[in-house]
Amino acid sequence: MIRARILHGGEARGRVLALDAPLSFWGAFDPRSGEIIDIHHPQCGSCITGTILMMRETRGSGTAPGGMAEAIRLGTAPSAIILVKPDINLAIGAEVAETLFGKTCPVLAVTAADYAELARHAALAISGDGKITPLQRDSFPD
């Protein structure tokens, strides 16, 4: 079990998608499909919907809160996002979506060492107080 810093709180479970490069939530990801569309991103074409999305940091865009809120509104957002470098934009987008749409996406930050440990697992569960626990992959078939 690892305890994370809560940027936006909530419970979530899902299979892990660990990104090899930072992702911008505006322009690089399509909230209508949930897919990474930036052709320069190594995981272009991957769908982030419903995953525990892990990336060390985001790619900055002032419009990212809108991309996050729009994805949550449309149901294409990840189940949760785990970062190393805290990100205001994703947390703001999650807060707005929770108020407006009654749905959310927890956003957490962990240390680099904890990140490396968590990224080894196939699936994770997140509790409302920021605890992150590994799950068996079979509970989340692709």
């Binding site: 505006w26 419009t63 991309g67 729009e70 509104r73 108020t99 407006l100 749409f101």
Partner: peptide
Amino acid sequence: IDACFYSGEAHVDFAQY
């Protein structure tokens, strides 16, 4: 203000709210 730049319906919903 930059939030007046349309990036999806969530932006409209936020301003309307």
